[in-house]
Amino acid sequence: MSVDALPSAERGLSRRLVEIVVALALMGLAGLVLWDSYGRGAGWEGGPQNGYFPARVGWLLMIAAAFALISAVRARRREIFVTWEQLRQVARVFVPLLLFVLGVAYLGIYISSLLFMALFMLTVGSFRLWTVAAASVLVPLVIFWVFEIQFLVPLPKSPFVATLGF
């Protein structure tokens, strides 16, 4: 029954805990929706007011999430949501991705892409350095050519790239 009895590779975040957290988060979301909808008017005045449907759907979500919560709390099986080892793998992708999105805000998409490519290929893959360098430089250049030059779709740029005349 206890988690400690499992082999160490199988240890991880309990699925029950995640189910409970998600259900609670959804109930919170439903609460937020209800608060907003009733604030604007959720009645029927010769037809539904603009909060009518969101409020009803909000209640529906509240009830559905409550059911999910109850069944999660009562669940007997002890499943693992994700093992620590898997979580470490996921983090190796998710953290660079987070940094990339953060980077887009400050460095624009081109410089961030270059750094992201390099970081990802170095940490996740096992490439030779020159492959990494070539890919990291080529990808932003191709994107630039396709979007900015061929399709004239402006993407977020850092002041540095902007001064190049685009």
């Binding site: 992708v93 660079p96 991705l97 990339f100 999105v101 887009v104 805000a105 998409i109 892409s113 992201f116 490519m117 990802f120 290929m121 996740v124 893959g125 096992s126 490439f127 890919a135 990808v139 994107i143 979007f147 779709v153 402006p154 993407l155 977020p156």
Partner: peptide
């Protein structure tokens, strides 16, 4: 995978951005 995955993610990000031009 380690070569294609970052490209897919970058293209996804660009895709999300270009829908409305919003970071």
């Amino acid at each position: 995978f380690a070569l294609v995955a970052p490209i897919i993610l970058i293209v996804c990000a660009i895709g999300a951005y270009t829908v409305e031009g919003s970071r």
